[in-house]
Design a protein around this nucleic acid. Structure first.
Lengths: 222, 222
DNA sequence: GTCTATACCACGATAGAC
DNA sequence: GTCTATCGTGGTATAGAC
């Protein structure tokens, strides 16, 4: 029993240490020796428990996914809206869109420097590994499908391609600001991007989505 | 004389070989030995001519920038428009925006697999190195400034922050589709993204930009 | 001045001792 | 289950050939 608990403990220490280092320095920028040292585990332990650096990365990834997919506050927003059998006023759909955008932005762009999970997920975007499919299925596909549902409420006759492209608008903006923060800061002559800045971006993207659907802008977005 | 020409030739061979390999496999994924072999140059030549892998990467980058910044067709579009002293009708500005978006998308998303330069520039986005500042100044800042000028023509009283965020819309979309193509394809159930697909994205982003400025949509975007 | 051969150190992986 | 020794590879540096 003690041995089994120790094993889990060792695995956990390795996953947490590896996650933080991978998120900070990337896959290639992180040495297994650094991970082992940070986790207070012997170098050989990585190969013993996970099989190698590559597999440790994938497992770190699954570890991060499990914690991320729980926060499906957005799911609730949409479900609540769909549950209402009352007539759906255009302006209510517009407000729903604004709320959903806000949730997405808050989940991904809130400056929570202590949490390495979001940054790790984003890294996978540009360095696709064998963990990519898992991340798509568990985190991004549900979000994407939800956005597509919203579009279909308003324009059920639209082409699939158009709906997909519309649904990508929020994600693409988040990916951009998350990955290109140093660039954006340099072009803006700033040190960092704060919450008010992202509130404005949220409002702008909401306006885009709403206007593309020919819905009326709520007062708060005017 | 012959020696000097040989030197330039060797440097050129190294830059071309390194550029292709860096674009294909990334910085960490490319070994100096592979570069030397592809360029038919001795391993030591990299250190002699450039000082090391890092400096070779930066020079490869400048090499790519010089070829990229020439294609400033967009510059011409905007200059032509500004040169016209006739009254600027809102719909003409809308058409200008659509044209400028088209040029941007064509420059970056046209499937020119043989040319490694664009892919190399994009890689720098998610793996910022010492070459970042150069890329921003030479390639992205001019584009960004151009977009900001367009916004000011219509709404000179807007806040700097709003203008920046508006100007980032095109770039963020391009960065997204360029970097996340595998993800997009998997979510769409496609093999690849073709020109008609990007034409639709171009149209959608143009609509966003135009509607955010309260300009009338040209007929071709209806 | 230009290029070649080679040695050096850090890293990932692995086998074998305990 | 843990730790150490060791191998192959990659980036770097340099002495010496031309």
């Amino acid at each position: 029993m003690g041995a089994s608990a120790d094993k889990e403990q060792t695995r956990y220490e390795l996953l947490e240490a590896a996650g933080q280092l991978f998120a900070e320095h990337g896959y290639d920028g992180t040495s297994t020796r650094a991970i082992a040292e940070k986790a207070q585990v012997n170098l050989g332990g990585i190969h013993y428990h996970f099989g190698g650096k590559e597999q440790l990365y994938v497992e770190t990834f699954r570890h991060a996914c499990r914690d991320e997919q729980d926060s499906s506050e957005q799911e609730g927003l949409l479900a609540d809206f769909l549950a209402k059998t009352t007539t759906r006023r255009p302006v209510d759909i517009a407000k729903l869109i604004h709320k959903m955008v806000s949730v997405d932005f808050r989940d991904f762009l809130e400056p929570n420097d202590e949490d390495w999970r979001v940054r790790l997920l984003m890294r996978e975007l540009y360095q696709p590994s064998s963990a990519m499919s898992e991340l798509i299925q568990q985190v991004f596909k549900p979000k994407h499908t939800r956005w597509m549902q919203v579009y279909r409420i308003v324009k059920p006759e639209a082409s699939e391609e158009t709906i997909h492209q519309w649904a990508f608008l929020v994600g693409s903006t988040i990916v951009f600001y998350l990955s290109s923060t140093p660039w954006v800061c340099q072009l803006l002559g700033r040190e960092s991007l704060d919450a008010p800045f992202f509130d404005n971006v949220t409002a702008m993207i909401s306006r885009c989505l709403i206007q593309l659907l020919d819905l009326p802008l709520p007062k708060e977005l005017r």
